[in-house]
C-alpha cells in the first residue's frame, strides 16, 4: 500500500476526535423551543392548593421560573431541594403536569412546597401549549410575561450558573 495512504485512517480519526470533543459539550436532547421570545400562552386552570381559578394574569410581575413537575417524575425529586433554595431569590411557579391531585399534594406535603403558585394541569393542556416533552422542564419568564429560556431536565447550580444566570442578568 502507498506510503502516504497508510496515514489516511489516522487523519480521518483525528478529524472525528475533533468533532467528538465538540460534541461532548453539546446536549443532543436539548430541543430549541419555538416559544422563546413569545408571550406566555393563555390558559384557564385551577390552583392545586387553593382550588381557585388561575389565569395568565395571576402570574408574577417580576422575572420568575416556571417549573413543570409531577409526582411520578424521579428527576423532579432530585431537583426539588435546589428549587426550594432558589425560591428564596426569585418566585418559582409550579406547573403540576399530568398528575393526580392527591399524589401531587402528598408529594408536596412530604418534600415541602416552595412554589409561589401551583398551576394544576392534570390533562397536560398547558403543557402542550408550552411544548413540554416531559417532566421536569423549567422556563424563565420575564416581568412582562415573555418566555426567555427553556431547560429540559434537572435544574442544579451548574445549569443555573451556565444558563439561567446569564439570561436573568439581561432581563433584569
Amino acid at each position: 500500500m502507498n506510503r502516504l495512504m497508510v496515514w489516511l485512517p489516522l487523519c480521518i480519526f483525528a478529524i472525528l476526535v475533533g468533532f467528538f470533543f465538540k460534541g461532548l459539550s453539546l446536549n443532543p436532547n436539548e430541543q430549541p423551543s419555538a416559544l422563546i421570545g413569545q408571550p406566555f400562552p393563555v390558559f384557564g386552570l385551577t390552583d392545586l392548593m387553593t382550588g381557585e381559578r388561575l389565569t395568565r394574569e395571576q402570574l408574577p410581575r417580576q422575572p420568575y421560573l416556571l417549573n413543570v413537575w409531577a409526582s411520578w417524575c424521579i428527576t423532579c425529586q432530585v431537583e426539588h431541594p435546589y428549587l426550594t433554595q432558589l425560591s428564596k431569590q426569585m418566585p418559582v411557579v409550579g406547573l403540576n403536569y399530568k398528575d393526580t391531585e392527591t399524589a401531587a399534594k402528598n408529594w408536596l406535603a412530604k418534600l415541602g412546597d416552595p412554589y409561589a403558585l401551583q398551576i394544576f394541569d392534570p390533562t397536560g393542556r398547558l403543557g402542550l401549549d408550552l411544548g413540554v416533552a416531559g417532566a421536569p422542564e423549567t422556563f424563565l419568564v420575564d416581568s412582562k410575561g415573555v418566555i426567555h429560556l427553556r431547560i429540559q431536565g434537572e435544574v442544579n447550580d451548574r445549569v443555573y450558573a451556565k444558563k439561567i444566570q446569564p439570561v436573568l442578568e439581561t432581563i433584569q
Binding site: 500500500m1 496515514w7 489516522l10 470533543f21 461532548l24
Partner: peptide, 30 residues
C-alpha cells in the same frame, strides 16, 4: 456525564490513535 465522556475520549485517542500511528509507520513496508 461529560466528565466520563472526556475520559473515554482520551482513552479512545490513545488506543485508536496509537494503533493507527503504529499502523501508518509499519504497514507502508508490508
Amino acid at each position: 456525564d461529560p466528565e466520563r465522556g472526556v475520559f473515554i475520549l482520551g482513552f479512545l485517542v490513545i488506543v485508536i490513535g496509537g494503533s493507527l500511528t503504529l499502523y501508518a509507520l509499519r504497514a507502508g513496508k508490508v
